[in-house]
Design a protein around this nucleic acid. Structure first.
Lengths: 290, 290
DNA sequence: AGTTGCAACAGGGA
DNA sequence: CTCCCTGTTGCAAC
């Protein structure tokens, strides 16, 4: 049985659970390899889905995906797109703590909100948590969705996320603080509150620094920190606190976070502190991050 | 000679200068007694007035007050109204550090922005500071002015500022903090950042307390603190840090303020601390004011 | 962590 | 410190 709501909310508070770019990318790659070509025989909505449907987080009661075939699975930012034939996109937002699991047979299935049964006997379960969603839309409606309609640069795309483009984003940041600019998904897409903390720790920047005040050196350091952090997390299959399609945790170790509160900074030994910034906790080294 | 600019700015920094209700009332009473019946022979605008005119803080270049007679001088809140015959109101906002001085003859005149020469040889000088203004308007335009157009209850008016009316103001305060509600001139008029501090100190209230959370007892205590503070200040002719029509300082001693920073609270001995609230400094006793 | 709406904060300008 | 404006952040409720 999956974690209870109270456990999930504890997990949020612990600031460890987050489904961000590396997790989405890892999941999409695995799903694409495992699921492409499979045909959906039946869509199962659990009773617990009622609340999600009421709030518009799940719309599969209106849409019959049975009979469609998975063509490909991709990701952008924190979101996963399952391309179906004919003409459907099945969008997944896992946000914080959602889960997508593959089952070779029904045997391993546990609690879920949505289950897709494939014609070969295997299946996929989706569990939505918090503000996550699982929605099917026509290709023509894709752009109208909040996501993926208006996403910004992908920080793991070498060409797209050039230093020049990154600086342009900073320029547009006006008088905003660096946390805001990095997490505003329409400018750069895929960074959540989790990787943000590691990025700022690596760049030795305080989350409230105004982007307009960053020196050339700091901009460059920040740019490198974003790329290094996310690329390493992708290489390691996502965070140690999230699981993949096969319920296996990632191998990326978070540098800062609730687990480091009060513990010595690996760089200078100062105790890691918790800040509240833009409605979320950010753990920082008060001595390194200026 | 009046205080030099540097002395003014030091006074600002020390959080001591402010032209609030008691100072306005004291000045208006003196002006009324001294000036009523005098006829303006000539209006003098100093060269330094150019900037004030450009910004609309002084409009006497458009209006010829020569030949008019002062009928009466009154105040409401922090503002002084000189009623002229025929049909003019000469409005003064002294804000922080402005000065209005009476001179029996030209001898004592020093630096000024506006000087009114009376037919008996005496004169009045006005010095505008900060965002203060000196403007003449027709009676018909009076209501259209920001002040006195939309002022709230006068806290030294026994009838108007009843406990019931005061509670109604608190009710309208919604989720706002007490400093905001007391200083919002459209609800209660005349309290500035200076007397606010003494009022909250007397009421033993923290400036960030939400008005909606005040208990019955706290409301009553606050009401009494407002009346006691302002009435006493009026009785004493305003703050020791402001001067009157004759360049004499008032006799009201501020309870808290920059001059008390770090010094022991007169009630409990705890060191007075400086807070930043709603864009201004508020000195409090951290132990008394909850 | 999405979104809204209100409240508080920050900076500028004289 | 005073006033007003604007833009940004804090925060709670849904």
């Amino acid at each position: 049985m999956p974690a209870s709501p109270s456990r999930w909310s504890r997990a949020w508070q612990e600031n460890l659970v987050a489904f961000e770019l590396p997790e989405a990318l890892t999941l999409a790659k695995q799903m694409n390899a495992e699921l492409a070509g499979k045909t959906i025989e039946h869509v199962h909505l659990a009773d617990e889905c009622a609340g999600l449907i009421r709030q518009g987080f799940v719309n599969l009661q209106q849409v019959n995906l049975a009979g469609t075939t998975i063509r490909s699975v991709t990701s952008k930012g924190k979101w996963v797109y399952i391309r179906l034939e004919p003409d459907w996109y099945f969008l997944l937002a896992l946000e914080s703590g959602g889960k997508v699991l593959y089952h070779p047979s029904q045997e391993s299935v546990v609690k879920f909100h949505v289950k897709l049964d494939f014609s070969d006997g295997s299946c996929l379960t989706v569990r939505i948590v918090g503000w996550g969603f699982a929605k099917a839309v026509k290709e023509s409606e894709l752009e109208a969705q909040r996501y993926p309609g208006k996403l910004g640069l992908s920080p793991v795309d070498e060409k797209e996320f050039s230093y020049q483009n990154f600086c342009a984003v900073l320029e547009q940041g006006g008088n905003k603080i660096v946390k805001y600019v990095l997490m505003e998904q329409t400018k750069i897409t895929g960074i959540g509150n989790g990787y943000l903390q590691d990025i700022l720790f690596r760049a030795k920047l305080h989350p409230k620094r105004k982007v307009a005040d960053l020196s050339k050196t700091e901009r460059k350091t920040l740019y490198n920190a974003i790329r290094k952090t996310l690329n390493e997390a992708v290489r390691r299959g996502g965070s140690e606190f999230e699981v993949d399609l096969y319920d296996q945790p990632g191998r990326y170790k978070r540098l800062v976070g609730e687990h480091m509160k009060g513990k010595p900074c690996p760089a200078c030994g100062t105790a890691i502190e918790k800040l509240s910034v833009l409605g979320g906790s950010v753990y920082v080294c008060p001595s390194c991050q200026k």
